[in-house]
Structure formats: C-alpha cells, structure tokens
C-alpha cells in the first residue's frame, strides 16, 4: 500500500473521528480535546496536499488560538456544570433527518461530479506562492480582513467586559 494512501486514511479517520466525538461528548472539555484531534487530522491533510503554510497556520491559529479560547471560556463559566442535563434538543431527530437528507442529496451529486482537468503547481515554494497570491491578487480581502478582526476585537471586548 502506498504511503500517501495510508496517511490519507489515517488523517481522515482522525479528522472525522475527532469530529464525531466532538459533537457527541457530554463534557465540553472532552469535546474540545476531540476537536483538537480532528483539527490535527485536517492539518495532516493539508500537509498531504503540500500546503505547508496552511499546515502551520492550522496548528498555530486553531490549536494554539481558538481551542485555547474555547477551553478558557469552558473553565471560566464552568460549562461542565450542565453535564447532567439533556444534551440534545427535543426535536433533534428533525435536525438529524434534515442533515441526512441533504447529505444524501449532496453525496449523490458529488458521486457524479466531473472536475476540470488538473493542473501542475508552480515550482516555487509554498509559502512564497501563497504570499505572492495573497499580496497581488487578494489585496482587497487582506485589507478588509483587518476590519473584520478589528470588529471582532472591539465586539468581544465590548460584550465581555463588565459594566463600568
């Protein structure tokens, strides 16, 4: 068996298995850890796709940043106090059914999908390539992203801070 294939399935099972665990755990802390596993799996997939820059970003931003934020909040508000309560909506079968229907439809469509012919990546290094693309073709979103983060900062501070 090809090593690539092995890693693909390994990372896939991490990503999907972690995801499944994350949405089924009772304890939010356990869910967060499962999510970390899943995100690591996704990072592995990036590596297989030769997106090294994203691999690093995924680990630093997601696992270093977002997950930490989650854990921080979970600890702060003592989320696990709600462990004994009902974990799913009363009408969860509806949500599951809707998702299943949509999933079947999308899967059927996907199985018939035809992609355009593949192209070769340029030989330049991944980070360089990403940087070139980002700063030449995607300058606008790059600038707008600063606005986005500004709003996020102002907003989360505003909402989370105690009344003066």
């Amino acid at each position: 068996m090809n090593l690539d294939v092995f890693f693909f399935y390994a990372f896939t099972s991490l990503a999907l298995g972690g995801g499944l665990l994350a949405i089924t755990r009772r304890s939010a802390v356990h869910a967060a850890i499962a999510l970390m596993v899943s995100l690591l799996g996704v990072a592995g997939l990036y590596l297989l796709l030769q997106a090294e820059f994203l691999f690093v970003s995924q680990i630093i931003v997601y696992i270093g940043g977002i997950l930490l934020l989650f854990l921080f909040v979970i600890m702060l508000v003592n989320l696990d106090a709600g462990k004994g309560l009902r974990q799913f909506h009363k009408n969860w079968p509806l949500g599951a059914a809707v998702t299943a229907l949509a999933g079947i439809a999308l899967a059927v469509l996907l199985s018939r999908a035809q992609l355009p012919p593949p192209q070769q990546m340029p030989a330049t290094g991944n980070v360089e390539l990403v940087a070139d693309t980002l700063f030449q073709d995607y300058l606008v979103p790059f600038e707008v992203a600063s606005l986005l983060l500004l709003v996020a900062v102002v907003g989360s501070v505003l909402l989370a801070r105690k009344r003066a």
């Binding site: 990503a15 999907l16 995801g19 499944l20 994350a22 949405i23 755990r25 939010a28 869910a31 967060a32 999510l35 899943s38 995100l39 996704v42 997601y62 977002i66 989650f70 909040v73 979970i74 989320l79 709600g82 309560l85 009902r86 974990q87 799913f88 909506h89 969860w92 509806l94 949500g95 599951a96 809707v98 998702t99 949509a102 999933g103």
Partner: peptide, 24 residues
C-alpha cells in the same frame, strides 16, 4: 465533515459545542 458539523449544530444544546460544530 460538513455533515458532522451540521448535525452537531442542529441537535446539540450546549452552545460551546455548537460553536465547535461551526469550526468543523
């Protein structure tokens, strides 16, 4: 992965886990 996230979002009551579903 999209479907896992969607199921989580539509069935869970714990808001932090719903946020995690969105990450998925």
């Amino acid at each position: 992965m999209l479907l896992i996230g969607t199921v989580g979002l539509l069935t869970r009551r714990n808001i932090v886990i719903i946020l995690m579903s969105i990450e998925l």
